[in-house]
Simulated assay, not measured.
Amino acid sequence: MKKKSKAMTKAVVFGSLILTCSLLFMASGYSIGSDEAAAIQVGVNLKKMQYEIQVADIGTTMEDRMKKQEEYKPFLTEQGYEAFAANRRSVIATGYALKNKLNMKVNRIQFENMNHDNMEKDTFSFRYSIDIELSSSELTSSQAPSVVTKTGHMSVVKQDNEWKVLKDLDNGFIADE
């Protein structure tokens, strides 16, 4: 009876050890996956803000445009925001939409993780592709919607426990069409 009890105790201890290791492994894998998902979500939010435009909602004054540019700050590091503002990323798509009287809507965004073993911790590097639907606004005659695909590269870093875009290299703006 004692041999059976000792064997049963060893089996329970061994089983508990395996279960604990499995849970720790899943938890660490889940953490990495959730960090990547959070970093991607910041990128998605930034690109949607940049490319989801209703002509009727575009402000016409410089004050309106400056106010709109400020809305990008929560998604970008300070360095990222400076580059984004200096390169006029916040106004190029808006200007295109206004000039052509077209509404824009993001249909699909796809991110591909390009991280390499030598990358810093809390940093993700992504390639992305965006399908943007261009459609008539209330200011134009009815046209069939068209879809434009844009690609780019984005670096997202964890700063003060939040994911923010450090660099966004958009390979060709909508205005290049």
Rank of each mutant, 00 (worst) to 15 (best):
K2G: 07
A11V: 11
I18N: 05
L19Y: 03
T20N: 10
L23G: 01
L24E: 09
M26R: 15
M26K: 13
A27V: 03
S28T: 14
G29T: 13
I32Q: 02
G33E: 00
S34K: 13
E36V: 11
I40E: 13
I40Q: 11
Q41R: 12
K48Y: 08
K48M: 07
I53N: 02
Q54V: 04
D57T: 13
D57F: 15
I58D: 00
T60K: 10
T61S: 07
M62V: 07
D64H: 10
K67Y: 04
Q69H: 10
Q69F: 05
Y72Q: 03
L76A: 03
L76W: 01
T77G: 09
G80W: 14
G80T: 00
Y81P: 05
A83D: 04
F84K: 06
S90G: 12
S90Y: 09
I92P: 12
A93I: 02
Y96I: 02
L98A: 00
K101V: 10
K101W: 11
N103S: 11
V106A: 00
Q110K: 09
Q110Y: 01
T123I: 12
Y128L: 05
S129Q: 07
S137G: 07
S137H: 13
T140H: 07
S142Y: 14
S146D: 09
V147E: 03
V148P: 04
G152K: 09
S155M: 05
E162G: 04
E162L: 04
E162N: 02
K164W: 04
D168H: 02
N171G: 13
A175C: 07
D176C: 00
